[in-house]
């Protein structure tokens, strides 16, 4: 940009005024958006922080309880285990989808422009336009005792593995996790495909001339070229994993027992079923801090060098 070169008049006062105008004019345009952000995002966050220090049923009088709600987050086994479950879900919401998406995107690159490529892209992106809540309901049917999943297992002779997946104490969380995989693989594939499209084709050509096979090309050209896009995928899906609510609430409501309880559902239960706004806010604040603590270092890691 044309920066602070001295003006022809050269008077310091005028220069300062113009600088001032330039600096604040932008903010003026941003003001409406900032106001909305403040009212609907920033203010509620502050309120949540305030509530988290109170014992309050959401309607009547409240009492100050200091840090009691926060100690409960880490001493109450149900709340604490919900945090651990959220980290387990990262495996299914992030690690698996990004890996699958990398493979799929590389393969699809070869099919670009062809009809099969368009078809594959559409099919892959389909889960993305289905709301998580609807996916949760659909998958409860597929996972049920006589659902598609078990029918398939029986058809290939693995009937002994068939079970009511969402009711099984050992498998419920993993089953819920796979719904997340299904949901985010399409998004990641789309993002990575867009990224691959930006990589200069001559790089691939050069690699090929140097004798690099498909795997070598993937490692030397595709992967480094997608650094930014992978960063976006990882960030979005980790937040989706840690803050998951709709899929879990619709599929299991945190059950069986508290086997699939995640912070999102626990916050909802505390706030609206148990009428304990303070405890719910404390857990929500802790969750927000965890999300920031996990995501912030990743931004550094994936930033372009």
């Amino acid at each position: 940009m044309p920066s602070t070169r001295p003006t022809r008049e050269g008077t310091a006062a005028r220069g300062r005024r113009r600088l001032w105008a330039r600096r604040w004019a932008g903010w003026l345009f941003a003001l409406p958006a900032l106001a909305f952000y403040g009212i609907f995002n920033f203010y509620p966050v502050l309120l949540s922080i305030q509530y988290s220090f109170y014992d309050w049923d959401g309607i009547g009088a409240s009492t100050w309880v200091g840090l009691k709600n926060y100690t409960e987050v880490f001493t109450d086994s149900e709340q604490f285990s919900s945090l651990l479950h959220a980290f387990y879900l990262i495996l299914f919401f992030t690690v698996l989808p990004v890996t699958l998406a990398l493979i799929t995107a590389s393969v699809l690159r070869q099919l670009q422009g062809r009809f099969t490529g368009a078809l594959a892209r559409t099919l892959l992106f389909l889960p993305q336009i289905i709301p998580g809540a609807a996916a949760g309901v659909a998958w409860t049917w597929m996972y049920s005792a006589n659902g598609v999943v078990n029918q398939t297992l029986r058809a290939v002779g693995l009937g002994s593995l068939a079970r009511a997946w969402l009711a099984d104490f050992d498998w419920a969380l993993t089953a819920v996790g796979f719904i997340g995989t299904w949901l985010s693989t399409g998004l990641c594939t789309m993002l990575l495909l867009a990224g691959i499209g930006k990589i200069d084709n001559s790089l691939y050509e050069a690699a090929r001339i140097d004798g690099a096979g498909p795997i070598r090309q993937f490692l030397a050209v595709t992967l480094p070229g997608l650094r930014n896009e992978i960063g976006v995928c990882v960030t979005i899906t980790i937040i989706a994993a840690l803050a998951s609510f709709d899929v879990v609430y619709l599929a299991t409501q945190g059950g069986p027992g508290t086997q699939t309880m995640v912070p999102g559902v626990a916050v909802y239960n505390l706030a609206f079923s148990d009428s304990r706004l303070g405890a719910a806010s404390a857990l929500a604040v802790v969750l927000a801090l965890i999300v920031i603590a996990v995501v912030a270092p990743l931004q550094r890691l994936f930033r372009e060098k």
Binding site: L46, L47, I49, Q50, Y51, F53, Y54, W56, D57, G58, I59, G60, A61, S62, T63, W64, L277
Partner: peptide, 13 residues
């Protein structure tokens, strides 16, 4: 944030 917290009345009272 401090101002909100310090406002001595709790929510809902």
């Amino acid at each position: 944030a401090l101002a909100t917290l310090a406002a001595c009345s709790g929510p809902g009272s």
